[in-house]
Design a protein around this nucleic acid. Structure first.
Length: 271
DNA sequence: AAGAGACCCTGGATGC
DNA sequence: TGCATCCAGGGTCTCT
């Protein structure tokens, strides 16, 4: 499941294949993913050149030479491959973007939670995003100020893209574990020092995950088909019943906001 | 306005 | 073997 490190890994892998390439043809195989896909075919993308590949939160941004942006969100099971068209279309491939070097940007998504659309200079989904966790504007001071009076569990607050963008379930669990904060604590109850520790843990875990090429859990693959190596570094995610790497207590699982939440009951006190 | 929950989707794992 | 059920979960929507 792609979070920020996985999307950043994909972006880095795509740059040499896409930057400067001209789009020659589109093939749309599915009527819709999370949003209708058919408008893409009529967007006049043929002949446009991809001048840059950027990222904002979990969105990949393929910048076009006419000022528009091809916005790609991998959802949970989105996979991008750069291959030729000789390889037969896979069952869940929804879109081919043919490039002027003969290669094809092939988009696969089993669960169809992904989004691919053309946007202009700004778009509602991008405008709503909070600061990048590894960029200017995010840190303990910001998190402390933003979370005052908020009763929602700190884990859900951390996963709110309007607070800070790109922190999904895996890394929210890990950051809270590293900073010894119970995921169910009200966001507004965190002391300033706890916010500092949490922000530092968020940055640390994301940086390490990017370094490792992301976490391959279930469906995520890098564009060359290889797996990321960060999964083995996870302290609590998916490890219910296993001993905490810090103290040996069994990791527990609860559900917050409908998502699996893993924590060490000894290291992360509810207070 | 904040917070909680439903919903979208498919495949894999599990249970009987 | 085969069928039913549950689970994974990012983002958006609705309801209170």
């Amino acid at each position: 499941m792609p979070e920020l490190p996985e999307v950043e890994t994909v972006r880095n892998a795509l740059i040499p294949h896409l930057a400067g390439r001209k789009i020659t043809r589109l093939e749309v195989f599915s009527p819709k993913l999370r949003e209708p896909l058919t408008p893409l075919a009529e967007a006049g993308l043929e002949g446009r050149t991809i001048i840059a590949v950027d990222r904002r939160g979990r969105y990949l941004l393929l910048r076009l030479d006419d000022g528009r942006t091809l916005l790609v969100h991998l959802g949970m099971t989105g996979v991008i491959r750069i291959e030729n068209a000789v390889i037969p279309k896979r069952k869940h491939e929804h879109l081919f973007i043919h490039l002027d070097d003969g290669m094809v940007f092939r988009f696969e998504c089993i669960r169809r939670f992904s989004v691919i659309k053309v946007v202009g200079a700004s778009s509602p989904e991008l405008d709503a995003l909070g600061p990048e966790p590894l960029g200017e504007g995010f840190g303990g001071a910001y998190f402390f100020r933003k979370s005052r009076e908020r009763k929602t569990p700190v884990k859900l607050f951390l996963m709110d893209n309007s607070v800070v963008t790109g922190v999904g379930n895996i890394y929210a669990n890990e950051a809270l574990f590293r900073s010894h904060i119970h995921p169910r604590r009200a966001a507004g109850s965190l002391k300033r020092k706890e916010c500092d520790a949490l922000a530092e843990a968020v940055c640390g875990v994301l940086r390490e995950a990017i370094e490792a090429g992301g976490s391959s859990i279930r469906d995520y693959r890098r564009p060359d088909g290889s797996e990321g190596h960060f999964a083995r570094e996870l302290g609590v995610y998916g490890r219910v019943g296993e001993p905490c790497p810090g103290c040996g207590s069994p990791i527990e699982r609860i559900v917050l906001g409908g998502r699996s939440t893993f924590f060490c009951p000894a290291c992360q006190k509810a207070k």
